[in-house]
Amino acid sequence: RSRTNFTLEQLNELERLFDETHYPDAFMREELSQRLGLSEARVQVWFQNRRAKCRK
């Protein structure tokens, strides 16, 4: 699998939701992934990586 390149719109939406909650539930992830045209797994990994970045 190659690296996912997020569009600016996708990143803005992901960051907006991250500001609301660092741990979106499965329903939120599924709804977001459909809206952004990403797989739920990519959304989940993005949040994992974003939380790690936040801890640094």
Rank of each mutant, 00 (worst) to 15 (best):
Q10S: 04
E31L: 06
A52V: 08
R29M: 11
R16S: 13
E20M: 06
N49D: 15
F47V: 05
K53A: 14
Y23E: 10
W46S: 01
R42M: 14
A52W: 05
E30G: 13
T7E: 03
E13D: 08
R42Q: 14
F47H: 04
N49C: 10
H22M: 14
R3V: 15
Q48G: 08
A26N: 13
Q10Y: 02
S39V: 05
F6Q: 02
T4K: 11
E15R: 03
R42W: 12
F47G: 04
A52R: 06
E30N: 11
R51Q: 03
L32G: 02
L11Y: 04
S2E: 15
E13N: 04
N5T: 07
E20Y: 09
E40C: 09
L36E: 01
W46V: 00
R35T: 04
V43Q: 01
R29F: 06
N12D: 07
C54W: 11
C54Y: 13
Q34F: 03
F18L: 00
N49G: 10
N12Y: 05
R16A: 12
S39D: 13
T4R: 06
M28A: 11
R35C: 04
N49P: 01
P24V: 05
D19T: 14
Q34A: 09
S39R: 04
A41E: 08
E13F: 05
D19S: 15
T7Q: 07
F27A: 15
R29A: 09
R50K: 07
S2C: 00
E30K: 11
Q48A: 12
H22I: 07
T7N: 05
R1T: 04
E31C: 07
Q44N: 11
H22Y: 03
A26T: 13
A26V: 09
S39K: 10
F6V: 05
Y23T: 09
L14Y: 00
V45T: 12
R50N: 03
R29T: 10
F6T: 03
S33I: 03
R29K: 09
S33G: 13
S2F: 08
D25E: 06
Q44R: 13
Q10C: 02
N12V: 10
N5P: 11
R51L: 08
L17D: 01
H22N: 11
W46C: 02
G37V: 02
L11V: 13
L14I: 01
K56A: 08
L14W: 00
W46I: 02
A26Y: 11
A52K: 10
V43R: 00
F27S: 15
G37Q: 08
N5L: 10
E30F: 06
R55M: 15
R29I: 11
V43P: 00
R50C: 02
C54K: 09
L36P: 00
Y23L: 08
E15F: 00
P24H: 01
R50H: 07
T21L: 03
F18I: 02
R51G: 02
L36N: 02
G37R: 09
L17R: 06
Q48T: 11
Q44C: 10
A41G: 10
R42T: 14
Q44K: 15
C54V: 04
G37F: 04
Q34Y: 05
L17Q: 07
L11T: 12
E15H: 03
N12A: 12
E15T: 00
A52P: 02
Y23P: 00
R42P: 00
F27M: 13
E13M: 07
T7I: 03
C54A: 12
E9H: 09
Q44M: 08
L11P: 00
F6W: 04
E40D: 12
D25V: 02
E13K: 04
L14Q: 06
R50D: 00
Q44S: 13
R16W: 07
D19Q: 14
R1W: 01
K53M: 11
G37T: 03
Q10M: 02
L32Y: 05
T7K: 02
R42D: 15
S2T: 11
R16T: 08
Q48F: 06
F27C: 12
S39L: 04
E9G: 07
F6L: 11
G37E: 09
F18G: 02
R51Y: 03
T21C: 12
R55A: 14
E15C: 03
K53L: 07
K53D: 11
R50Q: 07
A26D: 09
R51D: 03
K56G: 15
E40I: 09
L14N: 02
R50V: 00
N49L: 10
T4D: 15
Q44Y: 00
S2G: 08
V43K: 05
L32W: 06
L36C: 13
L36Y: 04
D25L: 02
L11K: 14
R16P: 02
S2M: 09
K56L: 03
F27W: 10
L36M: 10
D25K: 06
R16K: 15
N49R: 05
S2I: 10
Q10K: 06
E31V: 07
W46P: 04
F6H: 03
E40Q: 12
R50W: 04
N49V: 05
A41P: 08
S33F: 04
N12C: 09
M28S: 11
R51V: 08
R50I: 00
M28H: 13
R16E: 08
C54L: 14
E13H: 11
Y23F: 14
R35D: 03
N5A: 07
E40F: 03
T21K: 06
F6C: 05
A41Y: 01
R29L: 15
R55D: 06
H22A: 12
T4M: 13
Q34D: 07
V43M: 05
A26K: 14
E40K: 03
S39N: 06
N12E: 13
T7A: 03
C54M: 08
A26C: 11
E40P: 10
Q48R: 14
Q10G: 02
K56Y: 05
S33M: 07
D25F: 01
R55I: 07
S33T: 06
R42A: 15
Q44E: 14
D25N: 10
D25C: 13
A26S: 15
E9M: 06
A52T: 10
E40A: 11
E9W: 09
R16D: 07
R35G: 04
L8S: 13
R1S: 05
T21S: 08
V43L: 10
K56M: 06
L11S: 12
E15Y: 15
A41S: 11
E31P: 00
R51P: 02
E9R: 09
V43C: 05
A52L: 10
L36I: 09
R55L: 09
L36A: 05
D25M: 03
T21G: 06
N12R: 14
Y23Q: 04
R3P: 13
E30M: 12
N49F: 04
F47I: 04
L32R: 01
T7R: 03
R1G: 10
Q10H: 06
V43W: 00
A41T: 14
L8V: 15
T4F: 11
S39I: 03
K56R: 07
L11N: 12
L38F: 03
E15N: 12
T21A: 08
E31N: 14
F6E: 02
L32I: 15
D19C: 14
V45S: 10
Y23S: 04
Q34R: 14
N5Q: 15
L36V: 13
T7V: 01
T4C: 11
E15G: 03
Q10D: 08
N5R: 08
Q10N: 04
A26W: 10
R42L: 14
Q34N: 14
F47R: 01
D19F: 07
R16Y: 05
A41Q: 10
Y23N: 12
D19P: 00
C54E: 13
R16C: 05
L14K: 00
V43Y: 00
F18E: 03
F27V: 14
P24Y: 01
D19E: 14
E13I: 05
E20W: 03
S2Y: 08
R16F: 05
